[in-house]
Measured scan of single mutants.
Amino acid sequence: KLLSSIEQACDICRLKKLKCSKEKPKCAKCLKNNWECRYSPKTKRSPLTRAHLTEVESRLERLE
């Protein structure tokens, strides 16, 4: 599967780190437990900047 097509777990399953069936409108866990089942939009991760990478590398060197 391509990364862009990976389905996201519902908010509660993601928060509780449960295996989500990803069914809509309610996944199996939410249906069974009568929880409100919501699927928040995916958040875009910002790409690493060179400055951040350099900072992490220098912190790693100090720890070694």
Rank of each mutant, 00 (worst) to 15 (best):
S58P: 00
Y39Q: 03
E57V: 04
K29V: 02
C13H: 00
C27G: 10
R62K: 15
K42R: 13
I12E: 10
Y39T: 04
S21L: 02
L48K: 03
E55S: 10
K32V: 05
C27E: 08
K42N: 01
A28E: 14
C37N: 00
P47Q: 03
W35N: 08
C37I: 00
E64M: 12
C13Q: 06
R62N: 09
C10I: 02
L48H: 02
R50N: 11
L53R: 02
R45G: 04
E36R: 00
K26Q: 10
N33V: 02
H52T: 08
K29I: 03
E36W: 05
K26F: 05
K24T: 09
L18K: 15
C10P: 08
K44G: 01
S46E: 14
R14H: 12
L3E: 12
R59I: 00
Y39V: 04
N34V: 13
K44W: 00
S40R: 11
L60S: 10
R59N: 05
I12N: 15
R50C: 08
D11Q: 11
L63T: 02
E55W: 09
K24S: 08
Y39E: 01
P41Y: 02
S4H: 14
P25I: 00
E23H: 07
K24A: 13
R14K: 12
A9F: 12
K42D: 04
T49Q: 09
C30E: 06
D11K: 02
K32H: 05
L15I: 15
T49M: 08
R62I: 09
E64G: 02
S4D: 14
E64Q: 09
S5P: 15
R45I: 09
E57W: 08
L2R: 13
R14M: 05
K1L: 11
T54Q: 12
E36M: 11
E7L: 14
K1S: 05
S4G: 15
R50S: 08
C37Y: 03
L60Y: 01
K42Y: 01
L53F: 00
K1W: 13
L53D: 00
V56G: 05
L48R: 02
E64R: 12
I6D: 08
E61C: 11
K19V: 07
S40Y: 06
S40T: 12
C37P: 13
E57C: 00
K19I: 05
A28F: 14
Q8V: 15
E23W: 04
L15H: 14
R62T: 09
K32L: 03
P25W: 02
K44M: 10
E57G: 00
T54L: 08
K44D: 01
A28Q: 12
E36F: 02
C30L: 05
C20I: 08
K32M: 03
C10M: 05
A51T: 14
S40G: 05
C27M: 04
W35L: 11
T43N: 12
T43E: 10
R59F: 01
L2C: 14
R38W: 15
C20S: 02
E7R: 15
N34F: 08
K17A: 04
D11M: 04
K17N: 04
K16M: 01
A51I: 03
R62S: 05
K29W: 04
P25M: 00
L15E: 13
S40K: 09
A9M: 12
E55H: 13
E57S: 06
R45C: 11
E23Y: 01
Y39A: 03
K1E: 07
R50V: 11
H52A: 05
T54I: 07
P25Q: 04
T54F: 01
S58K: 15
C37Q: 01
C13S: 08
S46A: 09
K32A: 08
L15A: 14
K22C: 01
T54S: 12
L3Q: 15
S46M: 02
P25A: 00
L31H: 11
P41H: 05
L53T: 10
L18S: 15
Y39F: 12
L15K: 14
R59P: 04
T43D: 06
Y39K: 09
A28C: 12
T54N: 13
E7H: 15
Q8W: 15
K1D: 05
A9D: 04
R50Y: 02
C10S: 08
K17R: 08
I12H: 10
K42H: 07
A28K: 13
L60P: 03
E36T: 10
C10F: 01
L48M: 06
Y39D: 03
P47E: 09
K17G: 02
A51P: 05
K19T: 05
L48I: 01
P41T: 04
N33P: 08
S4Q: 15
R14C: 08
C30H: 07
E23R: 04
R45L: 01
A28R: 09
C30I: 00
K42L: 06
S58R: 15
T54H: 04
S5W: 01
N33K: 14
K22W: 00
L18E: 09
N34Y: 03
N34C: 00
L63Q: 05
A9I: 00
L53Q: 01
S46N: 10
H52P: 07
K32P: 05
R62E: 00
C27P: 02
K22M: 02
R14F: 09
S58W: 11
K42M: 01
K24I: 12
T49N: 06
L18H: 00
T49A: 03
A51E: 01
L2I: 14
P25F: 01
C20T: 01
I6T: 14
S40P: 01
L31Q: 14
C10K: 00
